[in-house]
């Protein structure tokens, strides 16, 4: 058992050594109020307690401590037999900010097979933006578990390295899981637009609407002018949310050729889409936008009318 100079800490240590798991559990709760940095060693001890309820309690308070001080213990807890403990550990790991934590994480990643553990470690490495995580992340892009692939995509996206684009494009196009494809499409926004043009052309035809909507978003963020025809096409998508994002993106591109499609959208039954369309027409602020903006001044929806007035002022300023 540990011995501590601080009497409060010593008292907690004694209680944590009690044979009664109920008392140990309450001692863990009190650990949170202890300002001594060494309290974390007691927490780590509690994370290894033989009683699952004590471990759960410790896991629930891990986010009240600095994760840096217990990276190893948290990695170990990812393998706990108890789900609450594993989830809490994964969550706390993703709060790691200290670059020094990367090393043990990478070591653990190498040895881990369990999808939950792997995904947790990848998520922790993601926010550290650790370049050495690149290789293992690439290797996990083909993991059987979609949760693992999703975290691997996230990690590579945060690294923003050009060399990872082909792998991300692969996931964006061909992954079986819609959330993985969506994440990968969202990650493409750091690219030189031309290098992902072909991929964007492909993913706008994705069967899942959220992937298509993400594609519109990415085209807008990339300001990829050559994708304009894709956006115009998407303004006729069956799902209004996709049409909405397409209209937004046309506005970001600022292209006159998109005006007729936006004009169509400005007559859509869904007011959210009319808003996006008039917003985009205002962003383009070309003379050809005027008739649509004029009509929208009398739209039944006040948000559309507001945007129309704003768009009109943009026109007169242009």
């Amino acid at each position: 058992m540990n011995a501590f100079d601080d009497p409060e800490l010593q008292e907690l240590a004694d209680r944590l050594a009690s044979p009664d798991p109920g008392l140990r559990r309450v001692a863990v709760l009190d650990l949170v109020d202890c300002p001594e940095p060494e309290a974390v060693t007691l927490l780590i001890q509690a994370l290894r307690d033989p009683d699952p309820q004590v471990r759960q309690e410790a896991a629930k308070v891990v986010d009240e401590f600095e994760s840096e001080d217990m990276a190893d213990a948290l990695i170990a807890a990812l393998n706990d037999s108890d789900e609450v403990v594993r989830n809490a550990a994964a969550h706390a790991l993703s709060d790691l900010k200290d670059p020094a934590a990367a090393k043990p994480l990478l070591a653990a990643l190498e040895e881990s097979r369990d999808p939950f553990v792997v995904a947790g470690i990848l998520r922790a490495l993601k926010s550290l933006r650790e370049p050495a995580a690149r290789e293992p992340a690439l290797a996990r892009l083909n993991a059987a578990d979609p949760g693992v692939r999703r975290e691997a995509v996230g990690l590579l996206g945060w690294l923003k390295e050009e060399s990872n684009l082909p792998a991300l494009i692969d996931r964006a196009r061909d992954d079986d899981d819609a959330e993985v494809r969506r994440a990968a499409v969202g990650a493409l926004v750091y690219a030189e637009p031309a290098s992902v043009a072909e991929a964007l052309r492909y993913v706008v035809g994705d069967p899942h609407w959220q992937v298509r909507a993400e594609a519109m978003n990415s085209i807008g963020k990339l300001h990829h002018q050559d994708s304009l025809p894709l956006l115009i096409e998407a303004t006729r998508d069956n799902t209004w949310q996709v049409r909405e994002k397409a209209a937004d993106a046309i506005g970001k591109l600022g292209r006159v050729e998109g005006i007729p499609a936006l004009g169509e959208c400005s007559r859509d039954a869904m007011s959210n889409l009319r808003k996006a369309a008039i917003g985009a027409l205002g962003a383009i602020a070309h003379e050809q936008c005027r008739p649509y903006i004029q009509t929208a001044l009398d739209d039944p929806d006040p948000d559309v009318r507001k945007l129309a007035r704003w768009a009109q002022s943009k026109l007169s300023a242009a």
Partner: peptide
Amino acid sequence: DSWGVHFQKDETGDYDMKKVHH
């Protein structure tokens, strides 16, 4: 953010700002 408060970020780790009005 450095203290661990979770703000929404996009898939490249940038803050995921939302436009609510023009």
